[in-house]
Design a protein around this nucleic acid. Structure first.
Lengths: 329, 329
DNA sequence: CTGAAAGCGCTTACAG
DNA sequence: CTGAAAGCGCTTACAG
């Protein structure tokens, strides 16, 4: 900026005023133009770190996401992309911190080294201690989860309705022995998929069916093994909900290969809706999430949190379920 | 840091020396311990911006990736994750800038505002002007592409062998009219998929077959339409290479639905290997990329570039092809 | 061995 | 309307 000021023949203060369009400052049009031209010629790019160091507040928002989350928590990743856009439009700098290895206090340390205005991460990266530490540093910790939390302001992306709708569809077909496939039972608070399947189990039981959640990581052997054990033990369910289309497709394929009739013997459906559903035979019945992410404007919740105007009501996004009935249920 | 120094009863300089383990400084063990304890009690986190402002060099490396790239350029995303890990292990801070809307000079401006040591982005985000601008600012611009470039140091992730292997497999089966499906013809320099399919076409032609690249964006209607037009016009190929498993699966499904026999009438295979291949019937023959990303150590190339020791040989990763013959070719 | 001081690139109250 | 000056949190040559 010194170079710009020198070239324009003004002081650094004046250059700063025109480059920042500082409200109070009345700079004659001619001076303004000279500064702007000098900045243009020198390709001046302001140094955001120096600025925030001086101002005492940062315009940086750090989002923490990793490859595993992308796969495991698709919905929250989609949400994060949208949040990032909203936040950038409000004039903040949004950067992703992608180190998958850190959580809790270690994560807090690496975020705080950047002195951001706020940090946005899935709930499982926070602990009580790390939230205290982040808050003490003047940074706003914001979480994303499928369920509200007392720990810190949390953007709720609730995909429970997808699991419930899937279970209710099976109940409507007369299924009484239902398996919810995927996520870790008892870890509903940790993983989106766990929550979705827990909700499916709850809905199935509420409808008078027998239901249990079975952990499953999609793959050919896992699916063949699972179906094999059902047949060997005589515990074949009459309805299966897969946490994702991929989960459901693997079991469907293994069932068909084992000679089980779908949907006559076992109905299968997925609690989400990926294109894969059209590619398997019989075609998979799915539950689509009817939320237009573009309209969600979740960034508004984050911006409110930064400004100390956190409003939990602004931060809840429930994914409305829409049945896509094909051939398997 | 002032707080830490005060609490430990030393000057800020001394605190800085022990906290940074500055080589030249000989600090008595007792003083060291006092400073460390104070830092611990106060949960001191160094302010990286202040540090790099003072030092005149930054330990930040910015990677630019967006959702669309993740889908379109899967390989380079996987590569980027690995690069990020290598760079972090070398003591740098690696952050992702995820704004999909900026390229060229606009992108350069938003990167340079952070004054990073280096920036890493797909080649198509750079222009001659932006490279000059970034270099002038003392930041090292590094690109990723499937092919070398003169513009700036480029990490080459060459997936051409996947396309070639696919075409050669079809040639070996006696196919003479081959379609390479996906990417944009003539845009081989822009997209990985385009490059992969261009290589497939080249290999097919080199083997004496007729071959052409057909743009295709995976989906049920697109596949049905494409197969329908082949049948109507009598232009059914005898071999199809899909740029990805998803591309191939859609065409496979549409062919089977239209009563075409696979592989007898048309052989189909994918120039990558996703789990989906096992889920469709007949099972898709694929080409796996036999590169252990963990062993690629692409970060070494980036680190070399930062240190002004760029070595193109270090930066080329060719994906070795491994045929996974299933039922469709 | 330790501290006082300068300075990285900025912003902003203050004085002229 | 414009400039001199202080100061954000740090590092590091320099003097004691």
């Amino acid at each position: 900026m010194s170079d710009v000021a020198r070239r324009a023949g003004v002081s650094r203060a004046t250059a700063s005023y025109v480059l920042n369009r500082t409200p109070g400052a009345r700079i004659p049009e001619q001076t303004r133009a000279r500064v702007l031209e000098a900045a243009e010629q020198l390709r001046y790019v302001p140094h955001v770190n120096a600025r925030s160091l001086r101002r005492g507040r940062s315009d940086l928002v750090v989002g923490h996401v990793d490859g595993a989350s992308v796969l495991r928590q698709g919905l929250s990743f989609v949400g994060l992309i949208q949040v990032a856009r909203d936040i950038r439009e409000a004039g903040y700098t949004f950067l992703f911190h992608g180190d998958p290895t850190v959580t809790g206090v270690a994560a807090a340390r690496s975020w705080l080294a950047l002195r951001p205005a706020a940090v946005l991460a899935t709930l499982d990266r926070y602990t009580e201690e790390s939230v205290a530490m982040i808050t003490a540093a003047g940074t706003v910790p914001i979480a994303m989860s499928h369920t509200p939390s007392d720990l810190t302001p949390t953007i709720v992306l609730d995909d429970g309705p997808l699991g419930r709708a899937a279970a209710e569809h099976l109940l409507g077909r007369g299924c009484r022995r239902i398996v919810a496939l995927g996520g870790c039972p008892g870890m509903a608070d940790q993983h989106m998929l766990g929550h979705r399947m827990a909700e499916a189990v709850a809905a199935a039981r509420a409808g008078g069916a027998e239901a249990r959640q079975v952990p499953f990581s999609p793959g050919r052997e896992a699916a063949t093994g699972l179906v094999g054990s059902w047949l060997a033990e005589g515990t074949l369910p009459d309805g299966v909900v897969g946490a994702t289309t991929t989960h459901a497709a693997h079991v469907l394929t293994a069932l068909v290969d084992a000679g089980v009739r779908v949907p006559q013997d076992v109905a299968v459906l997925a609690a989400d809706d990926e294109p894969l559903a059209e590619l398997v035979r019989p075609r998979l019945t799915t539950v689509g999430a009817d939320l237009d992410v573009g309209e969600a404007r979740m960034g508004a919740a984050v911006l409110a949190a930064i400004d100390g105007r956190w409003d939990p009501d602004l931060a809840v996004r429930r994914f409305p379920a829409r049945m896509v009935v094909r051939e398997t249920a």
